[in-house]
Write a protein that binds this DNA or RNA. Sequence first.
DNA 1: ATAAAATACGCAAGCGCTTGCATGATATTA
DNA 2: TAATATCATGCAAGCGCTTGCGTATTTTAT
Lengths: 333, 333
Amino acid sequence: MAVTLNDVAKKAGVSASTVSRVISGKEKISDKTKEKIFSIMKELDYHPNSQARNLATGSSQTIGLVINANEKDFYSNIFFSSSVFGIEKIAQDNSYNLIITNNQKKRNDKASIDTLLFEKKVDGIILPPLLLTKTLITKLKNNKIPFVILGEPNYFKDKISWVDINNTKGSNLATSHLYNKGYKQIAFLGGSENEIFTKNRIIGYKNSLNNQEPLIFNTENSEESITQAATEILKNKKVDSVICNDNITALILSKAAKEQNIQIPKDLGIITFDDYPLSKYISPALTSIVTDTYTQGEMAANMLFSLIQDKTAITHSLIDVSLIERESSMRNL
Amino acid sequence: MAVTLNDVAKKAGVSASTVSRVISGKEKISDKTKEKIFSIMKELDYHPNSQARNLATGSSQTIGLVINANEKDFYSNIFFSSSVFGIEKIAQDNSYNLIITNNQKKRNDKASIDTLLFEKKVDGIILPPLLLTKTLITKLKNNKIPFVILGEPNYFKDKISWVDINNTKGSNLATSHLYNKGYKQIAFLGGSENEIFTKNRIIGYKNSLNNQEPLIFNTENSEESITQAATEILKNKKVDSVICNDNITALILSKAAKEQNIQIPKDLGIITFDDYPLSKYISPALTSIVTDTYTQGEMAANMLFSLIQDKTAITHSLIDVSLIERESSMRNL
DNA sequence: ATAAAATACGCAAGCGCTTGCATGATATTA
DNA sequence: TAATATCATGCAAGCGCTTGCGTATTTTAT
């Protein structure tokens, strides 16, 4: 049905190999035949069949992105979406396609990863830290499949390519900003230390502390848990400012504060990680640490393509963060 | 390097066809050889090469999703992410993979779509309404490529499969909710009638109006434009309630109102389309029309698989909406 | 017991493309 | 002008799998 290489070759009176070489452009072909073949390709509206090409070459011109997101979880959604845009951008720049698979615990787990890797033959894969088990690493290494982790991994940090947000720096910025504004007792609210990004944020927080004990309030990823921790913070009369692990946490805290007539930023300063587009429109607008997951995605994809070319090109990197000051920490000294 | 069908066949002392048949499971093979082959496949850790299979069968076991999103635009991101999860879910249920391509004007435009479609990378494709030009439709039809539109299309509504949110019903719900709360003069704020979803929302709004003229304030997708329209609304002393086209619009309006000491919901009722997870935590919490884009994605994918099986199975459908009442419209009568 | 039907499997061509090697034509050099 | 190098192209095998057709073997019916 569809027009094939051979159809083009026949019509042009040349062999299939010649047409193939014209398309790939990597070998010398006389200008005359080249033009002829190009015009015939146009005429017949020829499109190479990538399946066939891939079978012959052994490359799929495709990379995979595995995510482990609860479909209805906003946090993972928003994070996911901006990094995926970055990844897709770089893939497209390299004339690659991007296959996305959600790897849910509920579903038949590793099946989807295995399919991607061993059947679809993606040329490389980007994974979230949580999915990275030691057996998976072994499998990937054994099969020489390039991969990069979208975040700092728990194992083999040195032997694996990964990109993370510079979370410790984020906490540094937040902490010193609050001190500069005259706050004296800063608390950290949200997340669990099982999450490596939270762990890093807490490290950064602790490192920048001045004349105070760390005041850490971990939470689970649920409204109740966060509300409870927020209440506890507000009870603690020492605390005059809080670094929140994400926007929802910041909003829950902010709401609880309002209900107790605690004024923001006068009585309580708030900074949040992640700059959701909404957070500048709410009141008080939230001072935020900008975590550029789009760039993180770009970087991850770039690393992956380096690995695809040279399997030994292991690197890591941290995406820089910045602080945007808004009302929630703008205390008039 | 990798284990092939033939390796398995040789080791089992059978022909490749037999192994192939065992795998596909569609033909009679004796239990004895079946078991033998299965155990050898395990032993050798055999994975079928989908490139080869696809070349032989002509199917790619992959569907495509084309989006046209500005990578840094939150609106499109959040919309995109939930529908993509729905699509991916259904793809996985059907043992298909999902390729995602962002079709940016800046980039070489239709190249990405063409690659997906005509190089046999996908068996079908999901497109946003904006990308659907008449030439593309012709091309798709000519090539018998199954496709469904993620939203109501501008052309050929009857001859194309599509799923949209029931936007008119959304406006109906919002309007009658506001009337029930005792508001008398409802305005519609945001969006442009070029967007078909906005158009439908305005139709629904007009249809449910009671003893009032339509009060429509369209905006561009920019902060200034929205702020300006919001200011204008607040000047119009008739208006006592507003249906906003999205959350950011609602927040900008809400902020402007606060600055003028207009009280929500007492002096001004607000309802917004789309229920962002944040909107229940802000103050006033926003009454929202829930637009279930996850289900929309699922539905789109299901439609696509119907089309893949039977190219004539054209259908359309609207995803039901609901209203969640929160503070911004809770006037004490 | 014999014909007919069903079963289990092998053969080989084919899916559309790439690529190492070979070859004839043309250009370069001494 | 002969010898050598360079070009432009063709040949054919191969990538790993599927599938229509054919055949030997077993089962069922008579």
